[in-house]
Computed example of a mutant assay.
Amino acid sequence: MLFDYFLIALSIALILLGLVGCILPVIPGPPLAWLGLLLAKFTSFSSLDWVTITVLAGVTLIVTLLDYLFPAWIAKKMGGSNWGAWGTIIGLFGGVVFLGPFGAVVGPFVGALVGEMVRKQPESNAKNNPWLSAVGSFLGFMLGVGVKLITVGVIIYFLIVNL
């Protein structure tokens, strides 16, 4: 019984850390929250079933992968090139390494902007605006944050309902 309380406390701590990780990209938010839910499954208080755990594992994996792809994808949809898309990805990782959590916001924007400015544009293709691509990368980052928050919110819901 005491071990159950320990697991619940650890589960809640992991889920709260996962919630923080939705905003701070250096912390893998949804995977930590899912791990917290998994730990809660092993308590005598839980009525969670393996189907729910497995489905949420799949959702968590997909959301985690999409979180890395959203900034580059939206930047490309807003007129960015492959240079801008790669700049977004490199900027995300470089920003986090050198600037911490703040770099996760600034990095994709600067990376897309630099990527678009570095590529050689013929005069006839000057309609592609590098600033628009950079804004797209920021919007992609915000979309990723939103999707992660929704995912962790669903995990929190299942924890509360099944305990």
Rank of each mutant, 00 (worst) to 15 (best):
M117K: 15
S47H: 14
V55C: 12
W83T: 03
F3N: 09
G146V: 09
L113F: 15
L37S: 06
L19H: 00
K41S: 08
I27K: 00
A9S: 15
G80K: 02
A9H: 04
P130L: 02
K127G: 09
L159S: 04
G115M: 03
F102R: 10
S124V: 13
D67E: 12
I23L: 15
G36A: 08
K148S: 10
R119C: 08
L163G: 06
I53V: 15
F6P: 00
I15D: 05
L14I: 06
L32R: 01
G100Q: 04
A72S: 12
L65G: 15
A72I: 03
P122F: 13
P130G: 03
F93V: 13
V154S: 09
I12P: 01
G111T: 04
P108Q: 08
S124A: 14
A72D: 03
V59M: 02
V147R: 05
V152M: 01
S124C: 06
W83H: 11
F109K: 00
V114G: 04
S133G: 08
G84M: 07
G21Q: 03
C22E: 09
A126S: 15
I150Q: 01
G87R: 10
L39K: 03
I12L: 14
D67H: 05
G79K: 06
L92S: 13
I12D: 02
A126K: 15
C22G: 11
I90E: 10
L32E: 02
I12F: 11
L35M: 13
S137I: 08
C22D: 13
L24P: 03
G58Q: 07
L19K: 00
N162M: 09
F45D: 10
L132I: 06
V55F: 14
Y68C: 01
G140L: 05
L48T: 11
D49P: 03
L38K: 12
V106G: 01
F93D: 02
G100K: 05
L19C: 06
P25G: 13
F141I: 02
S11P: 09
G21V: 01
T52F: 11
Q121W: 14
L132A: 07
P25T: 10
T64H: 14
S124L: 12
G80F: 01
T151F: 00
M1V: 13
N128G: 11
C22R: 08
I8F: 08
